[in-house]
């Protein structure tokens, strides 16, 4: 079983990438589980054709965790991809990070963490220990950073690299960086910039996903691109990503940039 996690700045396209990746992996005949680890709980929505599935934490809140079964929290979407949403507390109260930990403990107890590939789609930044849960021992061994060429997005990716570097120092840790995925915003020189960033943090660009209108159109149809336009160039990009990730055996311990390195890197690449 391969367990991977996608991390990246909020709004960068993690969920779109994750859902299309899962759909494409399922197209290879693999059994896929995708777990959305964001209180916004919209990770699996395109796989579920627009349905908001009940979140693990909603169920825990409504009826306690005693009577919950795997069927209550795992829903089959497009191509049989099994979908889970962790959910979270109401915005502005409680502790979402602890919610992620509780979700994982419940999924463990329900023996729901299985399949050929588990895809964890995690909130924008590793704001506390709870959101690093998918990186811990026994969960994702490969982290993929999703970023565009925008500096704030690279800054967030660098922060996540810090978390990976920290966790990988632990005894028995198997958490490594699988690579960087550029989800492009159509900025000039974007591919080179992200490629160079990946190199500097001791990783590599494993996929470049160009900006495409078909992503938005598919989303309006509440579908992944892989389902809505299977013959499109964009679908081919996701299929290629799926093959690369599934076959990826080159991972690394990242060497995140210091703030001044990040700033000088920005100056080198961004034409003012």
């Amino acid at each position: 079983m391969k367990q991977i996690a996608l991390y990246g700045k909020g709004g960068i396209g993690k969920s779109t990438t994750a859902a299309n990746l899962s759909a494409a992996l399922a197209g290879e005949g693999l059994d896929i589980l995708q777990i959305g680890c964001d209180p916004k709980h919209d990770s699996t929505r395109m796989l579920m054709h627009g349905t908001w599935i009940p979140t693990v934490l909603d169920l825990i809140r409504e009826r306690g965790d005693e009577s919950i079964t795997a069927d209550d929290v795992v829903y089959r979407g497009f191509r049989g991809v099994r979908c889970v949403e962790a959910g979270g507390p109401e915005p502005g109260i409680g502790c979402a990070g602890r919610g992620i930990i509780a979700t994982f403990q419940l999924l463990e107890r329900l023996d729901a963490l299985k399949g050929d590939v588990i895809v964890y789609d995690v909130l924008g930044d590793v704001v506390c220990g709870g959101f690093a849960m998918p990186m811990r021992e026994g969960y994702a061994q490969e982290i993929y950073l999703v970023t565009s060429g925008e500096l704030m997005s690279i800054y967030a990716a660098n922060n996540i690299a810090k978390a990976i570097a920290r966790l990988s120092r632990r005894v028995r840790s198997r958490c490594t960086l699988g690579g960087v995925i550029c989800n492009a915003k159509n900025i000039e020189g974007e591919r080179e910039l992200v490629e160079e960033f990946a190199r500097r943090i001791n990783s590599r660009l494993i996929a470049y996903i160009p900006r495409s209108r078909v992503v938005q159109v598919a989303e309006l149809q509440k579908q992944t691109v892989v389902e809505y336009a299977p013959e499109s160039d964009q679908a081919a990009v996701y299929q290629e990503l799926a093959r690369t990730v599934y076959g990826n055996e080159t991972t690394s311990i990242p060497t995140p940039l210091e703030m001044d390195e990040l700033e000088s890197f920005a100056l080198e690449f961004v034409q003012v």
């Binding site: 507390p89 109260i93 409680g94």
Partner: peptide, 10 residues
């Protein structure tokens, strides 16, 4: 208990 922590204890 844990649920009070996750969802807030107010």
């Amino acid at each position: 208990t844990e649920n009070g922590i996750i969802f807030g204890g107010e």
